[in-house]
Design a protein around this nucleic acid. Structure first.
Lengths: 140, 140
DNA sequence: AATTATATTGTAATCGTTACAACTTAGAAA
DNA sequence: TTTCTAAGTTGTAACGATTACAATATAATT
């Protein structure tokens, strides 16, 4: 669990990513809002505190953090990337009614396929789609 | 294995999708080119035989076929949808060097999590990213 | 405090996909 | 076979998330 700006600052330093107010705020947002937000959601929320914030900054920050392995990019729909500060292996379930993305545990190690011998695997993803219990009971 | 136009025609009929030259050609293309193509790849190839073909038709056809469960949409990158006529459960490995998408067997049943009790699952996806053996030996 | 490499900003461009209206066709009914 | 109509196709324009780029500002080192 990472909470303080100090922890983030140290982690950025160890990854050779320069410290900036914007980057800390993006990390803070992700650690406090486990909603798998889009870049735009992050921008819209942060611009209230940082009126000069630019969308481009949010995108480049997320790109840098993803490359450093501090955040994970989630591709479920083709028209939007979602971001997750939890980079441990886990699956995502996206409700097609309300759009909420739920986490669920997945043991990725079990899925090392024999057929991928010789492949260098950098990233593993599991996602399901369907309807969540809340929407099922609401008959949406 | 589905090969003949006749088979496709029957399957379309059973799914209450109206038969058209364009739809048959899209199905034919997908069954003969297991390369997980983009809509644009399909368009570019088919427009040679059907000069009047429109991109919109390719998109709407693929949308209809996906809804009917005859093709699967693959979201790995946010900027493109790829299409697969193999709707059986299997995983995809995308090589980040050459872009080729490989299939590999996956027992999706194992991914059934206790934590998803109460969720109605409609679609399961597993994809990995990395470098394929061919690109590894070519030092790309 | 000066320096310099890097980050931020705002605007414009990109590009896969979708919306829409006119035209055409598939398939059913007569 | 001919007619009819709902549905499919086409082309153009719009959309929207993301990226490119150049000017400005900032972090961190000297």
């Amino acid at each position: 669990m990472k909470y303080t700006s100090d922890d983030f600052a140290k982690e950025l330093k160890s990854k050779n990513i320069r410290l900036s107010h914007q980057r800390l705020k993006v990390l803070e947002y992700l650690s406090q809002n486990h909603i798998h937000p889009t870049a735009d959601q992050i921008y819209t929320s942060l611009v209230k505190e940082i009126p000069t914030l630019s969308r481009t900054t949010v995108y480049s920050t997320l790109g840098a953090l993803a490359e450093a392995g501090m955040v994970r990019m989630i591709n479920i729909e083709d028209h939007e990337i979602r971001y997750d500060i939890n980079v441990e292996n886990h699956g995502h379930f996206k409700c097609e009614s309300c759009g909420i993305i739920y986490d669920f545990p997945v043991d990725m190690a079990h899925y090392e396929s024999e057929d991928l011998k010789g492949f260098k695997i950098r990233d593993k993803n599991v996602y399901f789609k369907g309807i969540c219990p809340m929407c099922l009971t609401n008959k949406n």
